[in-house]
Amino acid sequence: MRVEHVRAKANWMRRRLLRMIVDAGQGHPGGDLSATDIVASLYFDTLRIDPLSPNAPGRDRFVLSKGHCTGALYTALAGAGFFPEADLDTYLKPNSRLNGHPNRTYLPGVETNTGPLGHGLPVAVGIAVAGQIDAAGYRVFVVTGDGELQEGSMWEAAMFAGHRGLGNLTVIVDRNRLQQGARTEDTNALEPLVDKWRAFGWDVFEIDGHDVAALLTAFDDAALPRSRPRVLIANTVKGQGVSFMRDQASWHHGVPSAAQYAQAIAELEAEQAK
């Protein structure tokens, strides 16, 4: 039941974010679609958040470290009730609250402004340290890109999280293996990625980032108390859900034509009908 609920939301997010990108004439569909199942699992099952009280001190935190994937974030926030769904129609338009990268001073539910890579994890580590000092019960979840792990600040933060034993922190690496221009392993190789995180003091798990049941189980397993930070290397496909976008670097910030959009929606509706 939980799984079906999340899968339906994820399908809706995919259709809705593609419409946003087509309407706006720009966006980052490839990375939005690789992260959608992860973000949907968090927002529509795991996170203890209240859109009526978005700054409640005890809330779970979600930080989108790969801040360019606003399609996934904004549809999740709208779907969870943080702002009206109609606001999605303003995406990237003049004076919209829905900037190309998330801004907490514009939108409730955004914890910190991201966009330049390498910022979200250090901030999330700080939130987790505050929770550790206060013995607060909240958890902190972060979605990072895999290419983002080429930023040095990510490893500064990873090292410190391991040192502090931040058991309230869960990082999900959206391991779609593509960065903006090419494969991660052809650009600046990340592997052996499991070993890297383990060496920094983290509990490491590999997971299928499109298997909602597996994601929910992994998030459940991260329940407190824990004494070490946990990272899920979520193997994903850039452009997941739309056949012609799958695993193509060109869809990092491509925009579908009208015909491509119609095909994408048809494919997603067929998937939903199953």
């Binding site: 250090p122 901030v123 505050a130 929770g131 933060a157 410190f160």
Partner: peptide, 12 residues
């Protein structure tokens, strides 16, 4: 990381 952690502590 120090400044990012600072921002996170403020969030907390």
């Amino acid at each position: 990381n120090m400044v990012g952690v600072g921002a996170g502590l403020a969030n907390g």
